[in-house]
Design a protein around this nucleic acid. Structure first.
Length: 511
RNA sequence: GGCCCGUUCGUCUAAUGGUUAGGACGCCAGGUUUUCAUCCUGGAAAUAGGGGUUCGAUUCCCCUACGGGCUACCA
């Protein structure tokens, strides 16, 4: 029952720009399946379209994967800031594999399974238009199929541009997609696809088939936009006499208007989300749950938990497909991302949160020019920021928000408006007395006992029944803000000296 | 136009012939609370439509509608 082949999967982006969120989902799914099955995750670069290459794109894609925590076992990686290749399947960059493609294309030509085509793009355009008018399936009319080898030879020698096309055989194709189930298509609806372009580079279809075979890819996870061309790929494998990999198409990520999320819509690249301060765990968690359901109540997952819940190759074999994957596309909903992000940040410990937040914080003016931090040593600064984060952690959605909503932790607050200190209908006199009481209580707490718990305990004791009378003005005088964390937390972060200073100034303002 | 795929609350989804169609996000209301947030409780909110099959269809089949993808010498 076991024909245990090693699981080998690949993510194969084209280096045409930033890795976008849909690409990350593809990469993640491949990765999770590899890890679940102790398999290999391979990164291959598909740079067969010379006109779309973007300088540095390969590096950026790899960096995005690394940021997300997706480790590459084989293929193209970055080590010591250099692009390197690890593995024994030849180069993992398609533009360096042209000899392979040429060899296999020649093989198909020799066997009569592929043929040269000299048709101009003008002729092909006209043909398509005509077919569309006649409500026919648009496909190549095989104008060049029956050229004699002498004619072909002559044309090539005279310098005519040509491509090589695959001759779709008669019959029908069927295969079982691991998500979409049995797919069956009549071959005569398929076009004689181009295998080699006139610049000598292979098309995606040929390069993918050859590489996945030579690299012994066991499962191909890719976006659902590839579903219609998969029968052609199966036919190619059959022409070569190779066993095709298992295909697993994943529903696309959609935008609000239910269209495939595209690069043109802005803010869909992985680096954008990184720069906006979302935790990588949140992004991964969010996209993993689009079109995949672990069948448990759990909604917040770490990478390890995602791997744990993912279906194994054995499960897939047994069930004849993935049971946890959906066929319908899912809308990218920022509200849901926000919630997942908050949950992940809540779960982080302060030390990790600090590491994540500090690069963003260091960019901020209120941090750089903080009057409160100016006399602190680096160590004191770090402790202080950690205290701020301890308080903010429960209400933070992105790393970029650190400090933003509580600027009073970093800056002078000036004179506080008395209205901000008045609890309900209390008089100025009562407010002043409350502040003096707070001053006394806090003044009696030593630096060593200055903990959140102590502050809360002692202030609540002092407040008695009418908590608002004491706590509201105290909070106001410490923060100068309409909204803030609790007075205990604020006092704890600010420390004894600064807290008493702010209380003192508040009292003074009453004359 | 042709081919392919899809369709459960606004959104992510559960329920593989029998449930008052469940959960989560968001939204609304109430409660706790010193402000805000958290937290707690409650609420509104969905099987696209029509035919079959069946004792019984969200679930299986067909048709329609709607949506999406592909239809490049791009991937």
């Amino acid at each position: 029952m076991n024909n245990k082949k090693q699981v080998r999967v690949r993510f194969a982006p084209s280096p045409t720009g930033e890795l976008h969120i849909g690409g990350l989902k593809t990469a993640l799914t491949n990765y999770l399946f590899a890890k679940k099955n102790d398999g290999k995750f391979i990164l291959r670069i598909e740079d067969t379209d010379q006109s779309r290459l973007v300088e540095g794109a390969t590096e950026r894609v790899i960096e995005s994967l690394m940021w997300a925590g997706i480790e590459i076992d084989e293929g193209v990686k970055i080590e010591k800031r250099e692009i390197v290749e690890i593995g024994e399947k030849g180069s993992y960059v398609q533009s360096k594999r042209l000899d392979f493609y040429k060899k296999y294309i020649q093989q198909l030509i020799d066997e009569g399974k592929a043929y040269y085509c000299f048709c101009s793009s003008e002729r092909l355009d006209d043909l398509r238009k005509k077919q569309q008018l006649e409500k026919l399936a648009p496909k190549y009319d095989r104008h060049c199929l029956n050229l004699s080898s002498e004619e072909v030879q002559k044309k090539i020698e005279s310098g005519e541009k040509y491509v090589v096309r695959f001759k779709i055989p008669e019959g029908k194709v069927s295969y079982t997609d691991l998500v979409y189930g049995k797919i069956e298509v009549e071959n005569d609806t398929l076009d004689d696809l181009i295998l080699m372009k006139s610049d000598g580079f292979p098309t995606y279809h040929l390069a993918m088939a050859v590489d996945d075979h030579l690299m012994e890819i066991s499962h191909v996870f890719r976006g659902a936009e590839w579903l219609p061309s998969t029968p052609k790929h199966i036919l190619l494998y059959e022409a070569f006499g190779w066993e095709p990999p298992k295909f697993c198409h994943m529903a696309n990520i959609l935008n609000k208007s239910k269209k495939k999320l595209s690069k043109r819509e802005g803010s869909v690249s992985v680096s954008d989300f990184k720069n906006q301060g979302y935790p990588k765990e949140a992004i991964l968690n969010f996209i993993a749950l689009l079109g995949w359901n672990p069948k448990t109540k759990q909604e917040i997952f770490s990478m390890d938990e995602l791997i744990r819940e993912f279906e194994s190759a054995d499960d897939v074999e047994k069930n004849r497909g993935f049971r946890k994957m959906n066929k319908a596309g899912g809308v990218f909903d920022l509200d849901r991302l926000a919630w997942i992000s908050r949950e992940h940040i809540k779960q982080m410990d302060v030390k990790d949160l600090y590491e994540q937040v500090i690069p963003f914080l260091e960019e901020k003016d209120f941090y750089q020019n903080s009057s409160l931090l100016s006399n602190f040593s680096d160590e004191q600064k770090k402790d202080y920021v950690k205290k701020v984060l301890t308080v903010e952690k429960e209400r933070m959605e992105k790393f970029t928000e650190a400090g933003e909503n509580n600027l009073f932790f970093f800056s002078e607050i000036g004179n506080v408006d008395k209205d901000l200190l008045r609890w309900k209908e209390n008089s100025d006199e009562e407010t002043k007395k409350a502040l003096e009481k707070a001053q006394k209580v806090l003044g009696e707490i030593s630096e060593e006992d200055w903990t959140k718990e102590n502050l809360e305990k002692l202030l609540l004791e002092a407040a008695g029944e009418k908590r608002g009378d004491l706590l509201f003005p105290l909070r106001g005088v410490l923060t100068g803000a309409k909204k803030s964390p609790s007075p205990f937390e604020c006092a704890w972060v600010l420390g004894k000296i600064e807290s008493l200073r702010r209380i003192g100034r508040g009292i003074e303002s009453f004359g």
